[in-house]
Design a protein around this nucleic acid. Structure first.
Lengths: 208, 208
DNA sequence: TGTACATCAGTGAACGCGCGTTCACTGATGTAC
DNA sequence: TGTACATCAGTGAACGCGCGTTCACTGATGTAC
């Protein structure tokens, strides 16, 4: 397992990938503001300079982490959609996936919230954040539209709005849970999600 | 209009009140992190030391601002509840009030989100924030419970959970809007709110 | 296959600065007699 | 009503420090011939 000779390009791509993994991890552990580039670089096995050689600054590193996160989410959603047989089954599977992802990485949503607040206040960053985020929501909307077609279901609002509405709920839950993770009862979670899904889809089959 | 002689106690209370007003304003303008105690003190007509003479630190000042904000909200909600004749009317009036408050001070919710993220990461602050916030939600729950009794309506979940659910929606909307205020269509807003309210109350009158 | 020079990813140390916090001080209010 | 001392809200200046960012450098890869 001796380090093979690599071209510059390969090495740099490797470094970038290492920094993304380490960045994600340290951001999750410490939060955006408290994570230091020193710690991230060290966790990846480099020094701070490597970060600046691969990303414009700390903000850009985070946006890249976010981009990678969303890419993997989209892939997961696509997979779930292909597996589900009925719309109800698929929606339930998506809900389950989201709940599991949150349980697996409970700090992700608070981290996103912290970064959103930061990005909203810093003009150029705000734009690049918006681009990545809207790209994600549009990709989710595509999945939702595909699902509708496959299952012959119509929606009361556009797929993009459904994606956004889902995000609204998720982020709202997260905001509320930040103070105390146990504060949202499972009953409340279920009621809200159900109300939300019934409200936005014509599940009864009426296509008016 | 010569400054009247005041006791120390009166003067101090006045200073504190001035700082709260100025703090609220500067926090709204700049956000929590970017607001400086210098600017707040100056806006209030004092120097930084006055802040430290009235509050433990920057965090405590914000919590005090928050506390005052919630107190005035509760008062408003109580007023609305007393005026409404039917439950539908009252719920609509509350929705309108919340929308108007958000339009009047669009930076309040982002500010709260920024501070929540901050507080979540700082142990002792987190507790005092939680105390203030839970106190608010409980007061809202009281209003909701009173409303139910007055109008003879039952809820599918506890009043406290309704208060929390409402807060979840509000904060979710706000999180989503931070990137771009125009991104949530009125239609989506209405659909979600309706789904939410129908989901949590037994409006048809069934008390089962 | 070898030599000489160019490139550039990553290093390591230094910089800089914004601002929250501290602290000795002051002058007006409060208290005792 | 007056005097002497105590208190303490608010002042103003200095401190401190964490960390993002910069930059001259190096040594391995790339390129030309």
């Amino acid at each position: 397992m001796v380090a093979t000779r690599q071209t510059r390009e390969e090495r740099k791509a490797r470094t970038r990938a290492d920094l993304l993994v380490a960045g994600r991890q340290v951001f999750l552990e410490r939060g955006f503001h408290r994570a230091t580039l020193d710690e991230i670089a060290e966790a990846a096995g480099y020094t701070k300079g490597a970060v600046y050689s691969n990303f414009a600054d700390k903000d850009a590193l985070f946006v890249a982490v976010l981009d990678a996160h969303y890419a993997s989410r989209i892939e997961a959603y696509r997979g779930i959609m292909l597996e589900g047989e009925t719309i109800e089954q698929t929606l339930r599977a998506v809900s389950r996936f989201m709940a599991e992802a949150d349980a697996r990485e409970p700090r992700w949503l608070p981290l996103l919230s912290e970064f959103t607040a930061h990005a909203a206040r810093h003009e150029p960053l705000r734009d690049s954040y918006k681009r990545v985020r809207e790209g994600f929501l549009e990709a989710v909307a595509d999945v939702i539209a595909d699902l509708g077609e496959r299952q012959g279901v119509t929606y009361r609002v556009t797929p993009l709005e459904i994606a956004r509405a889902s995000s609204i709920l998720v982020r709202g839950f997260s905001a509320e849970r930040q103070v105390d993770p146990d504060i949202i009862s499972p009953a409340l979670f279920e009621e809200l999600n159900t109300a939300f899904m019934l409200g936005l889809t014509n599940l009864e089959g009426s296509t008016t």
